Computed example of a mutant assay.
Amino acid sequence: MTRSFRFGVVAPPATDVSAWRDRVRRFADSGYSTLLMPDVPRWAPAPGPALAFAAARTPLRVGTWVYASPLRPAWSTAWEAHSLSVLTEGRFEMGIGTGRPGIEDELRELGMPTVLPRERLDRVRETVATLRELDGPDRHTPVVMAVRGPKAQALAAEVADTVTIAAMPDDTRAFVTGMVRAFRPGRDVELALHVPAVGDTVAPFMAPPDLDPAALRAADSLAFLPDDPVAATEEIQRRREEIGYTYFVVGAVAADRLAAAVAELAGR
């Protein structure tokens, strides 16, 4: 069966918490399903408290987009994720990955030991296993994994509920489509698409600041969506029909521009 559309928005709190709270409520009214927080130390408040705060004030689902596994012990991430799942009464989704490009420099700046790529993936596996132990038989916290290489894809096929292919800015539509079609989990897994550029706007926390929307548009990149509501609606439907994407994640700076398309497609 074809999954229904849903839409998430990456929206870390700004300095004006009251304005951020009002904005989050507007996202909920527009049809967005999920409020997401990045895991970027020093750039934004920690995801756990921010998500708990938002969940207490809106009906939105909440999640991390995504925990960087090298930044904390597996048990700590799992404990926080399980706690958020309990406190939100099942509205939390644990997004997790092995870290953004340049994570080694970030670890050194924080005075933390660097973690080899294989160890990062092992930590993701351990985090999910610990989360399942904490959840027990009566709770299932959804796991969202950002993956790229074959080992990460294999782990996601085993343990994830939702998967997003961690595409690079210069990846073509054909290349990413090929990666998605080659991903065969053998069970029902939701496919999510990370869209950092909408129209001329690039979302902070979702892409490098020098990302060129015009170049993405010219290359027919999946990292781009038009901000015209009709064109965006048609393109989102095309991506479900041709590739299988049903969960679309955009940045807060573009959420209002896509609101009409979200209202038209959410739940369909």
Rank of each mutant, 00 (worst) to 15 (best):
E158F: 01
R239L: 15
A129K: 11
A252T: 00
M112W: 02
D200R: 13
V180D: 06
L131E: 00
T64E: 04
V202M: 08
D171M: 13
T172M: 06
Y247G: 00
V143W: 01
V17K: 04
I165M: 15
M168K: 11
L155S: 10
A166E: 14
T177P: 01
E104S: 13
D105T: 05
T88H: 05
I243W: 01
R3S: 13
G63K: 06
M179A: 06
L134V: 03
D135Y: 04
T130F: 12
V230H: 09
L193F: 10
A203Y: 08
M206F: 11
V10W: 08
V163D: 05
S4M: 10
T64C: 12
P169A: 00
A260M: 05
P213L: 07
R257K: 13
L116S: 15
V198R: 01
G97L: 02
G95A: 07
G8C: 09
V115C: 06
A197D: 09
G95Q: 06
P38Q: 08
L225C: 04
R6V: 00
H140A: 14
T172N: 05
E158R: 13
D210G: 03
W75D: 10
A260T: 14
A182D: 15
P185H: 07
I103A: 13
A174S: 14
F248T: 04
R25L: 10
V115R: 02
P41C: 08
P59T: 09
L51T: 06
A218D: 14
G8N: 04
A46T: 06
A167F: 02
